[in-house]
């Protein structure tokens, strides 16, 4: 639960898990389907129809199909989780999510032997998403996790924020949250989840393979080719906010480092 997840970080610093304000979390967003500026999603995402919402689950699962989000949610244990969020652009926030563990959904649909990865896809609605008129990325947005990353108890699908329904600009009605990875891994407005035996393509890796790897774990020792990842700026500090050191795996090393035992994280960035 929340307390268990929060404890290791809270011990490091009380301030590290003080959530950002509702305004900060909902007006400073990267959701390129609604525009490339940070304020664009808050301006345009209201156009997205989020109910009814269906998630297609397919690939190597026992019970593939189109699942109504309301049915999924009534079957899941909904809880609040306060997580740090570190963007690949070297800023960060603390977000009080509400949601359920992805592992629980995967258990519900039944993962077949041989599945090794989970692929995700964002809705693509040109009528509702003004940003997709220009090929900033190869739409629809896609992401992927290794199965053990997807099954990790820190990995959640969020449906809410501050105990309220998720605002559209934050990825309503259903988004992934993987707190030890750069924010772009936490794909928004998920419409498809596919279990597969091959490593799925991911949007930013396709756009810039030198800059964005499949894993994209937060790592202060591996710089983005265009900027340093050693430090980050917490949103909300105003004009004179300093930078603070970025933590390995965004502060979740105790929980997730073992997933990458024996891997060269400079190679597998």
């Amino acid at each position: 639960g929340l307390a268990a997840m929060a404890a290791p970080l809270a011990a490091a610093s009380d301030d590290m898990l003080t959530p950002n304000s509702w305004d900060e979390i909902t007006t400073y967003n990267n959701y390129y389907e609604f525009g490339v500026k940070k304020g664009d999603p808050a301006k345009h995402a209201h156009r997205l129809t989020t109910a009814p919402w269906t998630v297609t689950v397919d690939g190597l699962v026992d019970r593939p199909g189109e699942y109504e989000l309301t049915d999924i949610m009534s079957a899941m244990t909904i809880e609040d989780r306060i997580y740090r969020l570190r963007c690949v652009e070297a800023w960060s926030m603390v977000v009080p999510w509400r949601g359920f563990e992805l592992a629980d959904l995967l258990a519900m649909v039944g993962v077949k032997d041989g599945a090794r990865y989970v692929a995700f896809e964002t809705a693509l609605r040109p009528d509702e998403m003004p940003g997709v008129r220009f090929p900033v990325l190869d739409w629809p947005y896609v992401e992927g996790l290794r199965l053990d990353e997807a099954l990790h108890p820190l990995t959640i699908l969020a449906t809410g924020l501050y105990g309220k329904p998720l605002p559209n600009q934050n990825g309503a009605p259903l988004r992934l949250v993987v707190p030890w990875k750069y924010g772009f891994k936490s794909i928004k407005s998920v419409v498809r989840i596919t279990l597969t035996d091959t490593k799925p393509p991911t949007s930013w890796n396709k756009a810039g393979p030198r800059e964005y790897g499949f894993y994209s774990n937060v790592n202060p020792n591996v710089d983005h080719p265009r900027w340093s990842q050693a430090t980050e700026r917490r949103i909300g500090g105003g004009l004179f906010a300093g930078r603070e050191p970025t933590l390995m795996f965004n502060g979740y090393a105790a929980e997730v480092a073992s997933l990458y035992d024996g891997m060269d994280l400079t190679e597998n960035f």
Partner: peptide, 14 residues
Amino acid sequence: GATGGLGVEPIEAL
């Protein structure tokens, strides 16, 4: 930027 008119990340905006 000092009074909130540039949003929640005024340094980048400025």
